[in-house]
Design a protein around this nucleic acid. Structure first.
Lengths: 243, 243
DNA sequence: CGCGGGGTATGTCGCAGTTAAATGCGCGCG
DNA sequence: CGCGCGCATTTAACTGCGACATACCCCGCG
């Protein structure tokens, strides 16, 4: 059965940051897999283009977004180490979204055309990918629920809390702070709010000492009630102070 | 390479409604795959439960939803022939969403535990599943964009148009009408709108002869400008009449 | 027959969230 | 040095959408 633990990159079965094994190097060569380093601000995938590459994030953060017909931008999700990108357009055809590096990034790249060969040679990779897709889909579902049913405060709290936990789990927390190199506009576009309102909400959360996000680093105090806030409906009077 | 056309069910490489081939029957037995018929209203998957089964829809429609902490419900997507359900919870663990039959349904069922064996024996299935996931993910991304950036009218227009096209493509359109056995409340919960507001929006779209949804059947007039409406921003004066 | 429940249809009102516009602040650059 | 530019912040005025209330329709049921 071998229920592989979250294997983010086809190259890595274990965790994100381990060095390559000899076996993995052979695999890399066979399937034309390589590493790619990009600078902050680089557009890795562009909507409308026809990229034959797939990526997994090894280090750094990025955002995956889509530009609508009316010019507005929707950030679909944020990319962290372990995430996958490039599949969304289907197994072929042009990309339906863009990916941009919010910090310097290191990516694991391989060819979409090799996927079929890879699955045949290594069914375990297919299993990994299915797993990753399932988790990804789960989070997209959560996001939909957030956009559809929660108010601004809950959305902001939920999003930041989730990112915080996600990055902490990968060991990126330093003294209770985690790197989050996004602009407030990125967060606003992800949550379907205006920049102004996002800002106000952040200010309130900061006042209440529920979180602190400055200079690209997010800090959440030890006994922060943020989790409650993100989940519980604000109707509840005991949480009400938030407004 | 064999870029398999959208193979909805592990049992069917071609289209949705073809009968099983002898080869497929052998496959069914080997991997303990079966068919399941359920009545309208049946809850197929329940959030919190621990179902070991995966499903693909062969016939009928359903909704996949999630109940939030505050009691509100978010419909994540609607299920049509060809759609996949049951994976979202990850490859194991309890379901994070529920699935309910909106009409009588016929499902293709198989065991999550067989997935690994199946992938090993038939890499093509893994490829299919990856494809399906990619398409699914694409639509979830679209939904997120809709919830985040579009107003009520655009959301309703977009959602109904998409379903209409989807079902037409599978040949379910009869005289320009397509079966859509959902309540307005379901649509509202999917779009993050109140029932009342959804209703009013539908009324306006009906007045403008852009669509007609009655008695579980959706009709869209041949030269309906619905598509424009769903995509173009209402700022444009020529579309403005809608308000 | 009357009664109740589920779904649909409309009107009014208030607030959360939007749009617009202006200020401050740090940084790279001619 | 001072100008421009990206980003964060703040204030003020407007509005889309949700909450609530009410009414209608169809159908099954005692």
């Amino acid at each position: 059965m071998s229920p592989v633990a979250c294997a983010a990159c086809p190259l890595r079965k274990r965790t994100i940051f381990t060095p390559f094994t000899a076996e993995e190097v052979v695999f890399m060569q066979k399937f034309k897999v390589g590493e790619l380093s990009v600078d902050r601000g680089t557009t890795i995938l562009m909507e409308g283009s026809n990229s034959p590459q797939l990526y997994t994030v090894l280090r750094g953060q990025g955002i995956r977004y889509k530009t609508l017909e009316n010019g507005r931008r929707q950030v679909i999700n944020f990319l962290f180490p372990g995430d996958f990108a490039g599949l969304q357009a289907g197994l072929m055809g042009e990309m339906k979204h863009s990916v941009e590096a919010s910090s310097d990034m290191v990516l694991c790249v391989f060819d979409r055309g090799e996927l079929w060969q890879m699955f045949r040679a290594q069914p375990g990779r297919a299993y990994d990918l299915t797993w990753i897709s399932a988790v990804e889909e789960h989070f997209l579902g959560e996001t939909i629920a957030s956009l559809g049913q929660r108010d601004a405060t809950q959305r902001v709290a939920w999003a930041l809390l989730r990112m915080y936990e996600r990055l902490s789990a990968v060991g990126l927390a330093v003294e209770g702070a985690v790197p989050l190199p996004f602009r407030q506009q990125d967060l606003a576009d992800a949550l379907g709010l205006s920049l102004v309102h996002t800002n106000k909400t952040l200010a309130r959360l900061r006042e209440l000492q529920l979180l602190n996000w400055r200079d690209g680093r997010l800090h959440i105090p030890a006994r922060s009630e943020l989790a409650k806030l993100a989940l519980v409906d604000l109707e509840k009077p005991e949480i009400r102070p938030l407004m």
